[in-house]
Amino acid sequence: MQFGIFSVGDVTTDPTNGRTPSEAERIKAMVRVALKAEEVGLDVYASGEHHNPPFVPSSPTTMLGYIAAKTSKIILSTATTLITTNDPVKIAEDYAMLQHLADGRVDLMMGRGNTGPVYPWFGQDIRNGIELAIENYHLLHRLWREDVVDWEGKFRTPLQGFTATPRPLDGVPPFVWHGSIRSPEIAEQAAYYGDGFFANHIFWPTDHFQRLINLYRRRYEHYGHGSADQAIVGLGGQVFIRPNSQDAIREYRPYFDNAPVYGHGPSLEDFMAQTPLTVGSPQQVIERTLTFRENFGDYQRQLFLADHAGLPLKTVLEQLDILGEQVIPVLRKEFDALRPSHVPDGPTHAALVAEHDQQAETEAEPTPETETSRA
Rank of each mutant, 00 (worst) to 15 (best):
127 R>E: 13
68 A>E: 01
130 I>K: 13
148 V>M: 11
50 H>Q: 09
94 D>L: 04
88 P>L: 00
148 V>P: 08
72 S>W: 12
135 E>T: 04
117 P>Y: 03
164 A>D: 00
56 V>C: 10
90 K>P: 11
49 E>Y: 08
79 A>I: 09
104 G>H: 08
144 W>G: 08
150 D>Q: 04
164 A>M: 03
118 V>Q: 12
167 R>L: 01
122 F>W: 02
51 H>W: 10
114 N>S: 15
103 D>F: 13
62 T>V: 15
69 A>M: 06
51 H>R: 13
71 T>D: 00
48 G>N: 07
42 L>N: 07
176 V>W: 02
152 E>D: 06
158 P>W: 03
86 N>E: 11
95 Y>W: 14
86 N>W: 14
63 M>Q: 13
171 G>R: 06
74 I>L: 01
179 G>Y: 10
54 P>F: 13
119 Y>V: 04
170 D>I: 07
124 Q>E: 14
50 H>A: 06
124 Q>G: 11
75 I>T: 15
179 G>A: 13
75 I>S: 15
149 V>F: 00
133 A>P: 09
128 N>K: 11
79 A>M: 07
66 Y>C: 11
54 P>M: 11
69 A>C: 07
51 H>E: 05
47 S>D: 02
40 V>K: 07
165 T>K: 15
76 L>N: 06
166 P>L: 06
129 G>K: 15
175 F>T: 05
80 T>N: 03
132 L>K: 07
146 E>G: 00
41 G>D: 09
65 G>S: 12
44 V>Y: 13
67 I>R: 02
109 M>G: 10
98 L>G: 01
169 L>T: 12
127 R>T: 15
86 N>A: 12
158 P>Q: 05
141 H>M: 10
116 G>L: 12
139 L>V: 09
50 H>C: 05
123 G>H: 09
68 A>W: 07
50 H>S: 09
96 A>H: 14
173 P>I: 06
159 L>M: 05
53 P>A: 12
46 A>P: 05
58 S>W: 08
41 G>I: 13
67 I>Y: 07
158 P>N: 03
49 E>P: 03
109 M>C: 13
165 T>F: 11
179 G>N: 07
117 P>V: 02
100 H>L: 00
117 P>M: 00
170 D>N: 10
98 L>S: 05
106 V>M: 06
124 Q>K: 14
179 G>C: 08
85 T>K: 04
52 N>H: 15
87 D>Q: 01
98 L>C: 02
149 V>M: 01
139 L>I: 12
159 L>A: 08
117 P>N: 02
102 A>W: 09
65 G>Y: 12
174 P>H: 05
45 Y>N: 06
151 W>F: 02
49 E>S: 06
97 M>S: 15
66 Y>E: 14
131 E>S: 15
59 S>G: 08
73 K>I: 09
69 A>E: 10
178 H>S: 01
107 D>H: 12
94 D>R: 13
91 I>G: 05
63 M>A: 15
96 A>R: 15
123 G>D: 03
89 V>S: 03
158 P>K: 00
173 P>K: 04
155 F>D: 04
